[in-house]
Simulated assay, not measured.
Amino acid sequence: MTTWQSIINLKGNYTSEPIPIPISADGVLSKVSWESVESIGSKIVVQTRFTRDNLNWSEWQNCINGAHIPDVVEDVGFYNVSIMFRILFMRNTYDEIPEFRDITFYFEPILLFDNKGDKSCSPEIWITKQGNGDFSIINTSHNNEEFKFKSLIHGETVFVDNENQDIETSLAVTYRYKDFNNNYLSFPVGKNILRVTGDADIKFRYQFTLLQ
């Protein structure tokens, strides 16, 4: 709706082009942050919206600086997503000049382990390391509990039977117990949002426990 304030050029806006996000994952952890200068009597509002099919867009939502991106839910699949942002400028007089400097979007892919059983699940896991270094899985939905190995070798495959607390490696005459933080995986009932650090191919094998 046209207002007197917009007619006399005290309001303005900028709308970005669609920005494709090259991530395919069970979900993402997200954050939006920006730098701006708002003089007394002026205001800047940042809004975002997104699409999963390049046709149907969500409604514009106001953002909070340093918080997650509105409507981007951690445990919802993140595929073929594009995002747009809009900057709204408002001021009361011509002497007030709000300044918008930059904006940053952060997306971190997550794994979703949905335990549909009636008891905690302790899966078997194979970890094939890409590049030398550490590897960890952090359960962000359960007290940030961390399962971690240090100093794995490129191409090495580590097998962990979390139920029986057994660890094997493809390397000869090598034992990885000393490089493990002794926190075996145990996923509570429901959705477990997992943050993975360290480049590796991983595979789970598990069976849900149902109470009769």
Rank of each mutant, 00 (worst) to 15 (best):
H68P: 15
N144Y: 06
C121I: 07
H68V: 15
T197I: 13
G198W: 03
F113S: 03
E168H: 08
T3H: 02
N182F: 10
I64C: 09
D71H: 10
V46H: 03
Y184H: 05
A172N: 09
H142Y: 15
K116M: 14
P109Y: 11
F107A: 03
D53L: 05
E96L: 06
R86P: 01
A25Q: 01
G198A: 01
N192P: 00
K148L: 14
I7Q: 09
N9Y: 10
E146M: 07
Q5P: 06
I110Q: 00
I125K: 01
V76M: 07
W4I: 13
L171Y: 07
S39W: 14
V46M: 02
N9M: 11
I44G: 01
K191Q: 04
S170M: 04
D71T: 09
I21K: 04
N143W: 13
Q5L: 10
V37W: 11
G77K: 12
T104W: 15
I69D: 04
D166N: 11
F105K: 00
E145I: 08
N132A: 08
H68Y: 15
I110C: 01
F149W: 04
R101M: 08
T48M: 06
D26T: 01
P20V: 11
R205C: 15
Y106I: 13
T140Y: 05
L112S: 11
Q212A: 14
Y106K: 14
N164G: 10
P18T: 08
P188A: 03
A172C: 12
S16N: 07
G190V: 07
D53S: 06
Y79C: 15
S136Q: 07
V189G: 03
K150F: 15
S36Y: 11
W60I: 01
I44P: 00
L10T: 03
E59T: 10
N56R: 08
V28A: 02
S42A: 04
G66V: 06
S6F: 07
I138V: 08
R86L: 07
L55N: 10
E163A: 09
Y94C: 13
S36T: 07
H154F: 09
P70T: 06
N132W: 08
S6I: 11
D75P: 10
W60N: 06
G41N: 03
S120W: 09
F105T: 02
C63T: 05
M90D: 14
E96G: 02
M1T: 09
E99S: 12
D71L: 08
L171T: 05
G66I: 03
N183A: 10
T140E: 06
Y177M: 09
S33I: 14
I21V: 13
V196W: 06
V37E: 12
D161Q: 05
N92Q: 12
T209Q: 10
D75W: 08
